[in-house]
Nucleic acid binder design. Sequence first.
DNA 1: TTGAAAGCGCTAACAC
DNA 2: GTGTTAGCGCTTTCAA
Lengths: 344, 344
Amino acid sequence: MPAARGGRPPTIRSVAEHAGVSKSLVSLVLRGSPRVSEARRRAVLDAVRELGYRPNATARHLTERRSHTVGVLLNDLRNPWFVECLEGLNSVFHAHDLRMFLGDGRLDRRTDEALTQGFLELPVDGMVLVGTMPESAVIAEAAATLPTVVASSRDFDLPGVPVFANDDRHGAALAVRHLADLGHRHIAHLAGSFGAVARLRRESYEQTMRAHGLGEHIRVERCDLTEEGGYRAAVRLLTGPRRPTALFAVNDMACVGALSAAEELGIAVPGELSLVGYDNTYLARIRHLSLTTVDNASHEVGRNAAKALLDRIAGRADGAGEHLLPPELRIRSSTAPPTRLTTS
Amino acid sequence: MPAARGGRPPTIRSVAEHAGVSKSLVSLVLRGSPRVSEARRRAVLDAVRELGYRPNATARHLTERRSHTVGVLLNDLRNPWFVECLEGLNSVFHAHDLRMFLGDGRLDRRTDEALTQGFLELPVDGMVLVGTMPESAVIAEAAATLPTVVASSRDFDLPGVPVFANDDRHGAALAVRHLADLGHRHIAHLAGSFGAVARLRRESYEQTMRAHGLGEHIRVERCDLTEEGGYRAAVRLLTGPRRPTALFAVNDMACVGALSAAEELGIAVPGELSLVGYDNTYLARIRHLSLTTVDNASHEVGRNAAKALLDRIAGRADGAGEHLLPPELRIRSSTAPPTRLTTS
DNA sequence: TTGAAAGCGCTAACAC
DNA sequence: GTGTTAGCGCTTTCAA
C-alpha cells in the first residue's frame, strides 16, 4: 500500500503518468466507459493496482456538483421505531449509490438547525425529515433550497414537499374500535404532548369514542413519548377515581410504561386492564410484553419517501401533498374483554 | 434567498465581486481573521447576507485535505446498546466539529467492506469500529491507512489501533458470582455464537464457575444475540433434563428472550429461575422487565474512543493496546436465591 | 492589509 | 479512441 507510507496518496495524475496516458483517459477507464482500447484499459488498471490508487470522492463531488449523499434528520435514535424507517430509506438509497448522513436533533431546535445547516453547506443532494420535530425557519429554508421529503411526520406543510406517513387517524380509530368492540367503555388515552402525529391520534381517539357513544368516557392524559412518561401518566390515570378498563397509548414506548405501572399497582393485564400501543416496534413484539399495537408500516413509509426523494433529485417533482399508508391492528396479549367486576 | 431561484448558488467569487474585494479577502473574513480592516469586513459580510451566500463544504474539504468527518462502522443499529455508545462518540466529535458518517454493516462482511471503501474514498479523517464484526482485509487495510480506533469490540488486533471496551471477563465474573452468592449451583450460560466479546464472556463464565467449585454444572447454550435467539436457546435449556436454576445471558436482548421462554413454560422469574443479562440497555431498565444485568459503561467507552481518535487525527498516536473500563453489576428483579424445590 | 495566482483531485467539453 | 483544456469553489502561499 504505497498510499500508506508517507507522502501523498496517488492521484489520477500519478496513475496517468505511471500508465503513460492522460488524466482523462484514466477517468474514462475508471468510470467504465466502453470507448477505450483494451490495451490502454489494462495499462490504466495495472497502474491503479501498482500504485494502490483510490479515487477521491470529495474531488469528484466538487466537479459533479453533487455529493451522492442525502441528509436524514430525525429526533431520537433511541426510539426503536426509527430504525425500521431508516432501513426502509436505506434499502432504496443504497441501491442508488446514495449515502445517508444521519443527524439526530434530540428534539432540540438548535441542534436540528445546526445539522440542517451542515446539510446545506455540504451540500447534500437531498434531505429527509423523519418523525415529529419542532418547526424551524432554517429547515423551511433548506426545504426550499434542497429536494426534500418528509417521512412519518405530519408537522410540516412545506410548499412542494411531499409527506409520507401512515394514516394516524385511521390507526387510532382501529385501536379504539378494537377496545370498544371488546366491550370496553372506560377507554382512556395516553396522549403525546406535542407534534401533529400525537394530535391526530388524540383527535381520532376522541372522535371514535363519540362515534361509539362513549363521548362521556373520553379521558386524555398527556405524557412524553418515553417509557418513563407512559409510566407516570398511567399511574395518574390508574390511581385516580373511575379507573379506566382500557388504555390506548400514543406509542409503544409509552404503552410499555403503562404496562409497568399496571404491574406495580397490582392491576392484571389484560384481565383488569387492556392496553394498546402504536408503531408495532420490536418492543411490542417481545413475547414477554406482547402488546396489541397498530402497525404504522414504517419500513414502507421509508421506502416510499426515499423513492420520492430520488424522483425529486432527478428533477421529477411530482406528487406533493400527503401520501398515507393504511395502518394495521396487531392483536397480541395485552387486550381482552373487560371483566364484570371492573366494568361500570 | 437568491440561492433558491434558478442559476447557481453564489460562490465566494460572487461575494468578492459584489463586495468589490478579492476572493482571498472574503475567505479571510469568513474564517475570522483579525488582519482585515473593519470597512472591508463589513462590506464582505453585507455581500454575504445580500446574496444569501453559503460556503461549500465539499470545496473546502478538497483544499484543506480533510473532510471533518469520521466514519463509524457498526453491526446492528437495532441493538439498543449501540445508541448509548454512539451518544458517547457524538458528544466528543460534535464538540470538535466532526460529523459522523454512520454505516451499519448488518454483520455482513460485504456490506462492511463496501462501507469501509466508502470511508477510504471520501476520505474520512478517521474511523471508529464499534462492536463485534467479522474481520476483513479491507478493514485492516483501512485501519492501516486511516487513523482508527475500536470501541466495544475485542475482535481486532490491528497494529497501532487502540481498543476501548469494558472488561468482559470481569463483567461475566460479576454476573456469575452474583448468582453463585445467591446460592445457585446450576447456572447455565446463553453464549453468543461468534465474536471475541462473546468468547470472553463465556470463558469467564466457565472460569468463574470452576472457581466456585461449580465446574461440573457448567452448561453453555449458543444463541445469536437477539431476543428470538435467546428465546430459542432458553427453551432448549429449560425443557431438557437437569433444568438450571439460573441463566447468565451474553446480552440483554438474549436475556429478554430467555425471560419470555420462562414465562411461556410457566417458570417463575426470579422464583424458579434467575436471569442476568449484559449491557444494561434501556431494555433491562424497563420496569416490566427489570433485568439484573452488567453495565458495560458504553457511553464512556464511546467518549474515550472518540478522544483517542481525535488524538490520532491530530498526529498523537500514543496509547495503542487495550483500554478496559470496569463493568458494574446492576441488581434488579430478575435474580433471587433458588428455592428449595428447584435446587438439586 | 490586500490581491494575484497556484493549486486541491477530479470531470467534462471539445478537439484531434 | 485519446489528449488538451477548462473549470468545480475554496484555501493558501507569496508579493505588493
